[in-house]
Write a protein that binds this DNA or RNA. Structure first.
Length: 274
DNA sequence: AAAAGGGTCAACCGCTGATAC
DNA sequence: GGTATCAGCGGTTGACCCTTT
């Protein structure tokens, strides 16, 4: 006995969002914050289902989203994370806060999959892959521990997030360069971009927590909702990006070095906890 | 110039796990 | 414990755009 789809009701609009709809959604979220999606259509007059509103916000309107082509570094990160995590796009996206899971998924399906098909054993041999998987399990354990310890130490900062924030403004300005060529769509893309920038300022004011500004909104939301399975693991225990970067990109890093690096991240050995 | 084919990506669909009652 | 509802996730679709012929 399945429940009927949420968008089955008559009068629910589907298809591409208009600028007017975006503005309605954004201004409501400005006043009330993201979440409680069910109430949004009723309170805003939007003829969209809650699901559609959430998707529009998280995949397009949310501040700090970087649009446009992926850098080599991002590409490599995605390839490695996909090898480790599989198609868990939300988990992968948690390592790239400026990208949405939908974006990463699309990029994987349209670019990387083909690219990798041309290259047998794309860069990571099986032994190394397994070794890294082991390391990933360790990381996941540590992440969970960190998440648990966050309750006791609420000021524990998400350092990596701050790092990403620093680049968000420049990236957002370059984002519109990759939008489509038609005037109407370009104009609209610019509108959406403006909405995002507008919201970046608002999020900073509203939150009062400078280190968790716009770019982290998805992270914050994920942390607020423990139901989000894998995501929360990585969100709460996000590894420092610089280490992750080294770990993923340096093919020559030794096992000893990996372990040392992990020990640097680990605060205590709680292996018996698991 | 126009048709065909392929690529891209925003949005939708269906499922799952969490939560409330 | 059972059921209903919700948010979130990954897979898929389809409209649009670009390139090729």
């Amino acid at each position: 006995m399945g429940r009927p789809p949420c968008c089955d009701k008559a009068g629910v609009k589907k298809g591409p969002w208009t600028p007017e709809e975006d503005i309605m959604l954004v201004s409501y979220i400005q006043d009330h914050g993201p979440g409680n999606w069910r109430s949004i259509p009723a309170n805003t007059g939007l003829k969209r289902c809650s699901k559609s509103c959430r998707l529009r916000w998280t995949n397009y309107l949310r501040p700090g989203i970087k649009r446009g082509s992926f850098s080599d570094q991002e590409e490599k990160l995605i390839v490695h994370l996909q090898a480790l995590l599989g198609n868990r796009w939300a988990a992968i996206a948690s390592y790239l806060p400026e990208r949405t899971d939908n974006d990463i998924k699309n990029y994987w399906n349209t670019h990387l999959k083909k690219k990798l098909n041309k290259v047998p054993n794309h860069g990571v041999d099986k032994g190394k892959w397994e070794r890294r998987l082991q390391t990933d399990i360790k990381m996941a354990k540590q992440a969970l521990l960190d998440a648990l310890s966050l309750d006791e130490a609420p000021n524990c900062e998400l350092n990596s997030v701050t790092t990403f924030n620093n680049s968000s403004s420049s990236s957002s300005s370059s984002s519109s360069s990759t939008t489509t060529s038609t005037t109407a769509i370009t104009t609209y893309a610019a509108n959406a971009d403006n909405i995002s920038r507008l919201l970046e300022g608002w999020m900073k004011e509203k939150s009062g927590v400078s280190t968790q500004s716009s770019t982290t909104s998805a992270n914050t939301m994920a942390m607020d909702s423990p139901s989000s399975g894998g995501t929360v693991t990585f969100e709460a225990g996000l590894m420092p990006y610089s280490f992750l970067e080294t770990w993923l990109f340096d093919e020559n890093v030794s096992e000893k070095e990996e372990q040392d690096a992990l020990l640097d991240v680990s605060l205590v050995d709680n292996s018996e906890f698991f």
